[in-house]
Design a protein around this nucleic acid. Structure first.
Lengths: 339, 339
DNA sequence: CAGATTTTGGCAATCGGTTGTCAAGCCGGT
DNA sequence: ACCGGCTTGACAACCGATTGCCAAAATCTG
């Protein structure tokens, strides 16, 4: 009757196809999943019927019987942090390309939410990508032992990871400040549980020592623009002329606060951010920051996870991938004030 | 042996509990889902066993037999557009609170991707929230007939919607510009298929007519900062002294382009954005824009969808919810230049 | 205390697939 | 023409829950 491909009331099942072709449901299943196990004529009949009925396999049922869900969980501490937008977009694109569904969860910066989400995902996802985990190494390693996992910006023995190598750009940032005449610098630190923050501080203080520059640490601060106010006040109070900040969100908040207080950037204080997030190029002044290919990091994380899921598909699965980082100089850094 | 709650190799099933308690699996199912149908002593035994085995129901299996998946799809045209961050966070929070899982999909501004995603989601989600749909009314209504749906910023007969009422702030924005002496204004339009853009233009041109002001439309432009360059050039060429822009992304892009061309904002050109996204408050100059409670819109959309899913839980389900909007004046608007 | 009524809990079918097993059918080799 | 080997496709069990139905047990009624 209808020329269009049957907009039936209920989605077609494998049984509808079987009935239409006069074969058993299992034959249909095989014809679709494992074509060479079925006679080519039968197979073509079945495939034609599948198209005609507009058949799409029911993913729930498939998951139940096969054990694979075709979904991957992506855990981020805070969806509204722009840093994760690009990461999420990277994972989303790569997962879709591979035919997987992305389950995005905001763990609200909480290790408990993170842990319970991981437990839940264990049944409803084939694997997880965990960005900036708030769990301790032990818990994370235990979770990774239970299901395929790739971490982002988190190094734990035995857990494949994508590391955005901001620490390597720290000496570069410091040299940039030194070349501008700064000799007293503060590191504005992120959350205490953030391994990224710790690594950045370690790299920075090592570089400072080898160069004989005074670098102190202040914080910790939550990774939000609102924290920037307290950070700016603390930086001013500490008497430094330049700050290297855990991330761009805090840095942008500092910019705003310094302006409120009538201090000029970079004349009175130079600021270097981290991540080069959305907004870093158009804030006032534009932020000097450490840039990295975040979206690409998301894609790499997915590739590494998929390599774990289908070990056959070759390409020895690396367990650690480091993304390069470089300093992008904009307007928030300048010569140290003479006083 | 282990004092901890059994970190067994395989997640516990309803059958494990049944075996442990010496009852049938169905009794366990009832005890957990429908407690008063089971003897209190048996029930407590079962519940204790469930806790001890660290039981979590398998959502796939539950979905298969009950028909409900416990998941809700959220479709946005572009994950990296900051406008959607707050929306996504709103839906995420509300869905989690109601025990649902969020399936986030980026439809890449494509009606085809959107349509195929909806078809796919029909089996794997209980309902969908569609933000800024690129589908035509007919296709959208058809999809809504097949599964529970709530749209955001899209009005289609018979489909419940959350509308962020930016059009109502248009007269306010225009009056603001008029009060600053502007008499020649351009509307920088968004995607041709965006109903939001059309509604904003309609409201603006109506207000302009009643006030006797010249307002022309330029565009369409893609909702990205990159489009701002072309938009700024077109605006300058058209000779207007002020622009009301489809959204903040384009507006911020215009700000950058105007600066590049050596034009001052607001002295040479006033800019009014739309949405008050992340970044609108710290760009240079800070953007005058139409603000609205986006995260709340996400929460409302979820509530409306859940009302459709559980019609019992009272609260006559409204089919349309309008979110208020107001003008936020910042630094990107100022007096019209005298020439 | 018998009979009627209500609880209570087990059996089995079902959801939509996947997969192991096995009989039938086909082929060529001798 | 007979036999072994390989292909093909049907049957049925199974994944982990939900749910209708019914029998046994417990409670109430007169």
């Amino acid at each position: 009757m209808a020329t269009q491909p049957v907009a039936a009331g209920r989605p077609a099942t494998i049984h509808d196809i079987a009935a239409l072709c006069g074969v058993a449901a299992s034959t249909v299943s095989r014809a679709l999943a494992n074509p060479d196990r079925v006679n080519i004529r039968t197979r073509e009949r079945i495939q034609a019927a599948a198209v005609e009925l507009n058949y799409t396999p029911n993913s729930q049922a498939k998951a139940l019987s096969s054990g694979r869900t075709g979904a991957v969980g992506v855990l981020v501490p805070d969806i509204t942090n722009p840093f994760y937008f690009d990461l999420i977009r990277g994972t989303q694109l790569q997962l879709k390309a591979a035919g997987y569904t992305q389950l995005l969860v905001d763990t609200e910066e909480s290790d408990e939410v993170e842990a319970s989400t991981l437990e839940q995902l264990r049944k409803s996802a084939d694997g997880v990508i965990v960005a900036a985990s708030r769990l301790n190494d032990e818990a994370l390693a235990a979770a990774a032992a239970r299901m395929p996992m790739v971490t982002v910006n988190r190094d734990v023995d035995g857990v494949p990871a994508v590391i955005i190598d901001t620490p390597s750009a720290m000496p570069q940032a410091l040299d940039h400040l030194i070349s501008l005449g700064h000799t007293s610098v503060a590191y504005v630190s992120g959350p205490a549980v953030s391994q990224s923050s710790a690594r950045r501080w370690a790299a920075l203080s090592a570089a400072a020592e080898s160069r004989g520059v005074d670098v102190r640490i202040i914080g910790p601060f939550a990774p939000k623009t609102q924290s920037g106010a307290a950070a700016a006040d603390a930086a001013v109070h500490s008497g430094v002329t330049a700050c290297i900040v855990f991330n761009d969100l805090i840095a942008i908040g500092m910019l705003q606060r310094l302006r409120e207080r009538g201090l000029r950037v970079p004349e009175d204080m130079s600021i270097v951010g981290c991540d080069d997030i959305f907004g870093a190029d158009f804030c006032n002044p534009p932020l000097t920051t450490m840039s990295s290919p975040i979206e690409q990091a998301g894609r790499v994380a997915v590739s590494m996870l998929l390599a774990q899921l289908n070990p056959l598909a070759g390409g020895g699965n690396r367990s650690r991938s480091v993304m390069p980082t470089h300093l992008t100089v904009r307007g928030s850094t300048g010569p140290a004030s003479p006083n």
